[in-house]
Nucleic acid binder design. Structure first.
Length: 113
DNA sequence: AAGCTGACGAATG
DNA sequence: ACATTCGCCAGCT
């Protein structure tokens, strides 16, 4: 079951469109795992770099990048996300503007598989 | 097996 | 926008 959750989370993350971001909690919700935002973080930490998962499109619910400002990881995420046209101001992203709000019917269909 | 930890969240100043 | 506090929860040790 747990491995099922893992792949469900990865799959959900893979659906975040370029130029948009989602929060950890949002991914958990969509993956059918409400209340498990931290689990998303954990699995994302352990993701296989081989499959280029758009992990950089996941941030905190307030738009903050989860890594400490100035850290290598934060810088990398910053570059990746900005290369997709998303603006970042000292570790923060404007959620009003960039939050992914998937079409419900579409996302339900895509999550089914 | 009982804590500990953390790529979190919401609410408050 | 930033810091604190508290709640949360699964994986790790």
């Amino acid at each position: 079951m747990s491995e099922e959750h893992r792949s469900q989370i990865y799959h959900t993350v893979s659906l975040i469109p370029e130029g948009k971001v989602a929060s950890y909690g949002q991914i958990a919700d969509l993956a059918g795992l409400p209340g498990r935002a931290r689990l998303v973080g954990l699995y994302l930490k352990q993701h296989d770099p081989t499959r280029n998962l758009p992990w950089h499109r996941v941030v905190k619910s307030n738009g903050q990048i989860a890594f400490p400002n100035g850290s290598d990881k934060a810088i990398e995420q910053c570059q990746r996300i900005m290369s997709e046209g998303v603006l970042v101001n000292n570790n923060y992203i404007e959620m009003k503007k960039y939050k992914w709000d998937p079409d419900l019917t579409d996302i339900l269909y895509r999550l089914a598989f």
